[in-house]
Design a protein around this nucleic acid. Structure first.
Lengths: 387, 387
DNA sequence: TTTCCCGTTGTAAACGCTTACATCCCGGTG
DNA sequence: CACCGGGATGTAAGCGTTTACAACGGGAAA
């Protein structure tokens, strides 16, 4: 390994001078600079990152924790894929400019409940700040990490105490697409393909459904099934739905994400059910394949890339100024109208979703939760399964 | 920041003892161990990664360079997305077991010709080994890196001198799908949607096309267009193709990857051209959306995850034993028959592709190149455009 | 000539951890 | 009783950089 000393020796100067040349900030005589530069080139010297970090007391590394949900075997359509990819692009854009680096850690969702502490701990010793890719990690672990380095949770419940939260406005987006279904297409009998119970995003979307329905008594939630965000789970939900409602299909199926909507579409196609004629289907996320489907999927776009960008910007700010206290940032979504909702074939409309005041809905949810944890949706959803 | 010294002081022992407890290998009296463990817990101590790396002379970090090709604005379907995602999973699987970390760097394809040296250099100072995500980086830069740390190129030209190469057997896979088109479906008049000139993968696939055609005089390459692996470029190629061959469509379109095949399909759909009745279309990669298309795409699966795994295993081996010399590893592909090639609707067949001896083809290519850089395919492909 | 100043360069002390080696303490041997 | 062996622990020397501070040297000013 070539060190600063080797360069210094070859150039006939001290290590301090070499360091100065390498960083090109302090004044060094031109002739010296040239001599040193040549020595560096000749030896192929590259500073050792570990030593620099140690000395500077700064690693210039951001850690990112990606949570992978469990995936049934052979379900290639791993849920997180498209999501993290986009988020990553956003993060990268900022990281790159500052010449920082990105250290990635994947965790299995199963680990998250009782996560492999040691992995997260050791991560916190290697980075200057942490981005948690999804609000899956339990609060108390987040606090533990946040005691050491700034932590920003992406797509988490707006309610962490120790960490910043950057999330898409799932509530308003979901409300928008459901409202569209009801008000613009007159679909009244809805079916819900819900996300996993521990996903904050799914939680907000579920809340929105309840909220919209509460204000529209003429509408009805005819059933609900909980999936795990994967295509396969959506397909199963679709099949189950068909079995349950053979005679009278619901008028629309609201899926908590696009992957599950894809699965539902697949189940319907297999059963010869026509979408949107017999039943409309909508998703959430606007992942890339959604526009390729038949029919193209109506969904809600959440700015995943921007999510990454904002989260990264935030963590960098916190690192630069540790006195900053944690904050919440909610990013607006877009309604993406294609034809699976009932809009005419060929429709491609994107419209910004205006942010709803969610206090009311939250409060209602709160009340319900206090009323002994018996959310309407869940209750309805479970009964038919038992019957 | 809590250091080893703080813990040592609190526990009333020396730093050496604390270190021993932390790593749990050397013998420490049970009572001491407990005291130290308590102190660690109480202070929330986590070892500093930089200091550890410096002292151990090992960072336990693998660097991965992802090359992003230029993407037309608004072409969301960024080419690399699905590819890297899968590769990453493979890499991660190994990394995780060893408790190493993964440092990711993205580079724009434009940078790669004359890459931002400083970024790659600085990367090499922060990691123990480097994985280059695609064979885009010029050999001389690879050599420069390889002088410092082991380097493994994924999907590179089997021919690097300084670095290992792990790649899918693009040649055999591509030959297999084209042979299927010709021998099983009797398609003779082929059209080629080629990949970017600087992609090694595209190169191997192109070579296979030439190779198969050379052995089947009754077949003809009626044209070729170069795309950049993106959906949009495939769509443009499709439109161009239609314009050129309005009267007599080719019988099959061979695309250098799935994204471009998706684009071609899209162009055909827009023009009302029926696939595979009027013209067959095949891709390469078997990315996730390909099975969702209408008609589902016949393509070649390359084991991207395994690619990542093997590459990672290799770099770890090289780090463990630096005396190892660079090697090449070619992974087998699978032919994925769906219906865009002319197989009946509903077909889903995967069959392993046997590895072809490519020496002959390489040699022929070599000869051609020497014969003044006038490859048959290119010549044919360009003429119609000029005419 | 002496004194000062300032641009340039060198010296050496961190940074937090690992680990070779030294030390200490004890019970067991000869 | 002196000595030995070995387990437990401490001491301190690195690891490769950065950087505060000191030192130097050569004009300019007095």
């Amino acid at each position: 390994m070539v060190t600063l000393y080797d360069v210094a020796r070859l150039a006939g100067v001290s290590t301090a001078t070499v360091s100065r040349v390498v960083h090109g900030q302090d004044r060094v005589r031109e002739s010296t600079r040239i001599r040193v530069t040549q020595a560096i080139e000749e030896l192929g010297y590259v500073p050792d990152g570990a030593a620099q970090s140690l000395s500077r007391r700064r690693k210039d590394i951001i850690g990112m924790v990606c949570v992978e949900r469990e995936v049934e075997q052979y379900d290639i359509e791993n849920v997180g894929l498209l999501y993290y990819d986009e988020v990553l692009r956003g993060v990268e854009a900022l990281i790159r400019n500052n010449n920082w680096s990105l250290l990635i850690t994947f965790m299995q969702a199963e680990d998250v409940g009782e996560p492999d502490f040691r992995r997260l701990d050791s991560l916190s010793g290697k980075v200057d700040g942490i981005l948690i890719g999804e609000g899956f990690v339990a609060s108390r672990y987040i606090e533990r990490l946040a005691a050491r380095v700034p932590v920003v949770v992406i797509a988490g419940t707006p309610g962490e105490r120790a960490a910043d939260v950057v999330a898409a406005d799932n509530f308003s987006g979901s409300a928008a697409v459901i409202t569209h279904l009801i008000d613009d297409h007159g679909r009244r009998r809805l079916f819900h393909v819900d996300g996993p119970p521990n996903s904050p995003d799914a939680g907000r979307r579920r809340l929105a459904l309840e909220y919209v329905l509460r204000n529209r008594p003429q509408c009805e939630l005819v059933g609900s099934i909980q999936g795990i965000f994967s295509v396969r789970s959506g397909e199963q939900a679709g099949e189950e739905l068909l079995a349950r409602h053979r005679g009278a299909l619901p008028e629309a199926v609201v899926c908590a994400n696009d992957q599950m909507a894809i699965g539902v579409l697949r189940a319907f196609a297999a059963a010869g059910v026509r979408v949107p004629d017999e039943v409309a289907v909508v998703g959430f996320d606007d992942i890339y394949p959604s526009s390729l489907l038949d029919p193209p999927l109506t969904t809600v776009y959440q700015p995943m890339r921007v999510l990454g960008e904002r989260a990264c910007a935030r963590v960098l700010d916190r690192i630069a100024d540790p006195s900053l206290s944690p904050a919440i940032e909610l990013l607006p979504t877009e309604l993406v109208l294609r034809s699976s909702c009932g809009c005419p074939p060929g429709t491609v409309v994107r419209q910004p979703v205006t942010t709803l005041d969610q206090a009311g809905a939250d409060q209602a949810a709160q009340g319900r939760a206090e009323a002994r944890q018996n959310p309407v949706v869940r209750a309805r959803s479970r009964q038919p399964a038992k019957a």
